[in-house]
Design a binder for these strands. Structure first.
Lengths: 202, 202
DNA sequence: ACTTAATTCTAGACACTGTCAAGATATATG
DNA sequence: CATATATCTTGACAGTGTCTAGAATTAAGT
């Protein structure tokens, strides 16, 4: 191979390296120069593929939303087909994703670094949101986009699962439940017990 | 005044300056040197009062938990004395605090910068948690620290209010509700509608 | 009161960071 | 095959947090 000068697929290599960097050092110590070093290129190379550090993080977050939906779909495959069970499985997938990618999760939801006006980012995040909208529509038989009560149910369910995910990955389930010593079955039982409360019952 | 060399109360002055810096520039651009400049001292001065940048942020977060409880108590004063109404008022105070101090809120809950083993921090955050524990105890008549179902209720309520707060301050209530164009009364009606769902009913 | 110790603050250095500009190198185009 | 474009390197710049040495002020000890 005569040319190691032109990488060929630096963009995706940088995305991979950025993912590792994010998981390893956390978002608050995330360094663009370190990512470049990880990918074996100079510190100026990433500028030709992403709009600076935040541009790279934006792309990383966009990919995160797609991965989030994938994880949710995987959990739903092993659940009952009944609508409520599917919603719970979707929620547990949401939390599972957060637990496996806590720094990425924070980047996606609790950071101002990603550029939310970016097309990829907004499309991917919108797709994740619309997945929940569809699940609520199945349960209530009303379209949240035209039925305010149904949209309130969407936001209640999102609030519950998102808040629970945040509390889990920030270690706030330790004191109440000794969470890290529980097996997965017991954890999911707690998740389900909590998540179903978000549904309004009459 | 012959001496402007020794400040006299630099610690609290730095805390004030840090609060302004946090609100103005956000946590991700928070600069210790900028805080020192804001307080009118050299960039090395803060080291004599806090354990570096993270030490200052730890103290700021600890003060945030006390302020959080204060805001919750204020909201409860204007609410009915009935236990459920008090819990809802506490939750709305939680969200109100997050809306008025979004960067501080993120520092307290979604950042790894504060040192959670710090005595002040852990005491203040524990006090805020125990306030919720007390409210659930009043409603259920069972002590969450000895009744697992009651503790589950604590975490469900916390998840709901915390998730809702996160979604609000990250602008996720805009598309569903056009949130920024609502008046406070309509907003609080949505909050209450969502928050009460966290309670398990039989 | 006077000397000594401890605290508080400044100033400079160090290794980092992200971004920008200039130039070298490889690929694509005509 | 010459030219243009895309890609990558290198160096510079201002900014960051932290450390060290020393100056200025206050506190402590006798």
């Amino acid at each position: 191979m005569s040319s190691s000068y032109h990488h060929g697929s630096l963009a995706s290599a940088l995305l991979d390296a950025a993912g590792e960097e994010l998981s390893a050092t956390g978002i608050e110590a995330f360094s663009l120069r370190s990512v470049a070093k990880r990918a074996g290129v100079s510190h100026g190379a990433p500028a030709h593929h992403f709009k600076g550090k935040n541009g790279l993080l934006t792309a990383l977050a966009a990919a995160g939303y797609k991965e989030l939906v994938d994880v949710q779909n995987e959990h739903q495959k092993t659940a009952k087909s009944e609508e409520l069970a599917q919603l719970v499985a979707s929620g547990i997938g949401y939390i599972d994703f957060a637990m496996k990618n806590p720094e990425l999760f924070r980047l996606m939801f609790a950071s101002s670094k990603p550029d939310r006006s970016d097309d990829d980012f907004s499309a991917a995040s919108r797709a994740a949101f619309d997945k929940l909208v569809g699940e609520i529509r199945s349960i209530l038989g009303a379209d949240p986009y035209s039925d305010r009560a149904a949209m309130t149910q969407v936001m209640a369910s999102w609030s519950m699962v998102h808040g629970l995910a945040e509390l889990v990955i920030s270690g706030r389930m330790e004191i109440p439940f000794g969470f890290s010593q529980l097996n997965q079955q017991d954890r999911e039982a707690i998740f389900e017990d909590i998540l179903v409360r978000a549904l309004k019952r009459n």
